[in-house]
Design a protein around this nucleic acid. Structure first.
Lengths: 136, 136
DNA sequence: ATAATTGCAAATGCTTTGCTTGTGA
DNA sequence: TCACAAGCAAAGCATTTGCAATTAT
């Protein structure tokens, strides 16, 4: 079965190689936010000959096509996730690295207002919360 | 006259070298968000022998002491600013790179609420708006 | 057929570090 | 004095790239 990423990529006229198929598959099946190294490891379980350069190139390609999203959280290398769901932001556990996604429309609205007040149209934003779990 | 940064650093028991004094002075007089390269250039106008390694080391030192803040905006190298004013976030002009600072207590409050709802204590956050100037 | 893609290794860009010499308290 | 800091060049790390061989359409 072909993955979501695969289909989107084809629809955009991308050339589908075996490597790209596998990377698409792995990304599709990932519910976390793997970095390139991790992605490379996962892909290598399916085909040990795929080079990390190809993973870098593919991930960049998918990102430029809007099929996956890149995140640069503090202190980490770039992480990727499929852009399936609606837009969301991230809360990062400073102790474990665990990532929780959240959506908050009120914050979004305020951001737009802030930008407007400063004379800008909001094109993009980055909101990351860093916290530590409250033990009860 | 000694800079704010210099005083804070001394109060923390830091050893004040000529190089650190100069970097502190330059940072104190900077109202923008220079990267290490830019900082090195500015400092070199006062003393052409200061190495970029020292700038890297000093900037890290000041940051760890909470005297200056480091920012990693999308696609750029790390930038620094003195932590004088109250906490603020940044709006980056995607066309010119111009940076505007802003404060929004409502957003802060909501962030804390979001974290709490997810079972976290908010320790830190990153909020950056990317926009393009509205021409009227 | 042939333009695009791969794998490899080398190059890059920013940042850090080992080591020897210099210096602030 | 002497532990710490500076300067230099080399090393590190994530990411990109040139090139020859391979492959999708």
């Amino acid at each position: 079965m072909s993955s979501d990423i695969e289909n989107k990529f084809l629809k955009q006229g991308g050339r589908l190689t075996d490597q790209r198929k596998l990377i698409a598959k792995v990304m599709s099946e990932s519910n976390d936010h793997p970095d390139v190294d991790e992605l490379h490891k996962r892909v290598n379980k399916l085909d040990s000959k795929i080079s990390i350069a190809t993973v870098y190139r593919t991930v960049k390609l998918f990102e430029e096509s809007g099929i996956i999203a890149k995140h640069d959280f503090k202190g980490n290398k770039s992480r990727y996730e499929q852009t399936l769901k609606e837009h969301h932001d991230h809360l990062i556990d400073i102790n474990t690295g665990e990532i929780t996604e959240f959506v908050n429309k009120d914050i979004e609205k305020l951001q737009k207002q802030v930008a407007a007040k400063l004379g800008y149209e909001l094109v993009d934003h980055r909101l990351e919360l860093y916290g530590s779990k409250i033990k009860k």
